[in-house]
Design a binder for these strands. Sequence first.
DNA 1: AGTGAAACAAATTCTCT
DNA 2: AGAGAATTTGTTTCACT
Lengths: 160, 160
Amino acid sequence: MTNQESLDETDIKILKLLQQNSHMTVKELAARVHLSTSPTFERQKRLEREGYIKRYTAVVDHHKMGHNVIVLCNIRLKQHTHDLIQQFMDTVQSIDRITECYNTTGDYDFQIKVYAHDMKDYQDFMLNTLGNIDCIGSLHSIIVIGEIKDSHYIPVSKKR
Amino acid sequence: MTNQESLDETDIKILKLLQQNSHMTVKELAARVHLSTSPTFERQKRLEREGYIKRYTAVVDHHKMGHNVIVLCNIRLKQHTHDLIQQFMDTVQSIDRITECYNTTGDYDFQIKVYAHDMKDYQDFMLNTLGNIDCIGSLHSIIVIGEIKDSHYIPVSKKR
DNA sequence: AGTGAAACAAATTCTCT
DNA sequence: AGAGAATTTGTTTCACT
């Protein structure tokens, strides 16, 4: 359900600020939206309750964790039967280093984002992990040379 | 600097739990890693201080915000001069609905992820926003039919 | 819906082991 | 390094506007 119509400018501001820093105290948040703590607190809880805020997370540095390679891998399935598609999607969910997966238009069926320690590690992943998913027909790996932007920030301005 | 060698199993566990839910109290976190609050607190602060945790964020539901269309857009630049590349990257940073941008290998130079309210909105974005960035040579838009996975979760298991 | 204070819980610091 | 108590700070509720 899309009902951002029920959000006012203050709610929008709160979503903006909490995306930038969810460790901000209610007091500080209140100051930034020019309200006192209780209505600010109540608004935040409402945004959580109604699902605008799905959860809170720590943003971890992948370089620090030794993941220096990101690959955008385009995948075509062998056949497009319901069972094969479901099997592929289930497998994707279970593999930690696949952090994103989209069903796409165009020449391929899916695009996944894969984190690897280095090229050797990605090669191992392709051969041993992807290579064992037998519903996969063909692959095309696009290597990320540089991360320009990875904002984790959903735009929240009002629809016009 | 990649020194996840300095992390022990408890640190790894903390990173895992805080990615799943950064609103967990230190007390609860402590219970899950079988330590008392003070060393758990000190470990969390250390992970922040040393940059393993970059920041904390609220994960916002894009559907709730009226963004029902995601597009992976591949971009080729007209020329590959330093200035033109810099200009493109600066522009990308300034546009909120472009949430990710990667410099890539292959036929195109960049892939961006774009959020739009609907197809009409994406068309407007292509014509008016991308259309005005004159360093862009050509475009290829891949429409996302379905989101299978968007975990925002950096794999944190120990390198072997 | 908002304010301000009161009650409660969590974060942070400190001392000891 | 880690435990546990003491202190400080933030969260949550409530009575009032």
